[in-house]
């Protein structure tokens, strides 16, 4: 009976449109680490172009692209929906940091493996662009 009560309460809390979701998120440090990778280049244009090419290879359509703010947002529609935002920032050390964060349907993707896959695909595109191979 107690289990029943707990379950019912759990379901009921799930139904209320809580405002907690507006600022909900995971651990800031851990998230940033898994979502960020640094590249030893200052070729901002090349990096942004590689990101666009990678997203197209992965089946995304670009929703927004801004060179000055170095931000790209894209959506992939299959049986599911994935939305991703990729930003590029200059680091003091003469490197560029690329950060990607993605959502799968209504949930944030917080599995490190997904980001490793994304950066592995981006690495290949980056190599080709920075070495001027199409």
């Amino acid at each position: 009976m107690r289990v029943l009560l707990v379950l019912t309460l759990f379901v009921l809390t799930g139904c209320a449109a809580s405002t907690a979701a507006i600022t909900a998120g995971g651990s800031q440090v851990e998230l940033r680490q898994m979502q960020t990778r640094e590249y030893e280049t200052m070729d901002r244009r090349g990096v942004l172009r590689s990101i666009v090419a990678t997203l197209q290879d992965l089946g995304f359509v670009i929703d927004k692209a801004d060179f000055d703010l170095a931000t790209i947002s894209a959506t992939k529609l299959q049986k599911y929906e994935i939305r991703i935002t990729v930003t590029v920032r200059e680091r003091d050390s003469g490197r560029l940091a690329v950060r990607a964060n993605a959502r799968f349907n209504e949930d944030p993707i917080e599995d490190p493996k997904s980001y490793q896959d994304f950066f592995a695909t981006l690495d290949k595109a980056m190599f080709l662009t920075l070495h001027k191979v199409d």
Partner: peptide
Amino acid sequence: GCAYSAAVFALMSAGCATFPEDAFRLSESA
């Protein structure tokens, strides 16, 4: 009670679509 719990559990898990593990990998047809 058990049947009810099972129904509630089924309802909760039905909404969860599974994340495709290869979503960020280049597919064979890429």
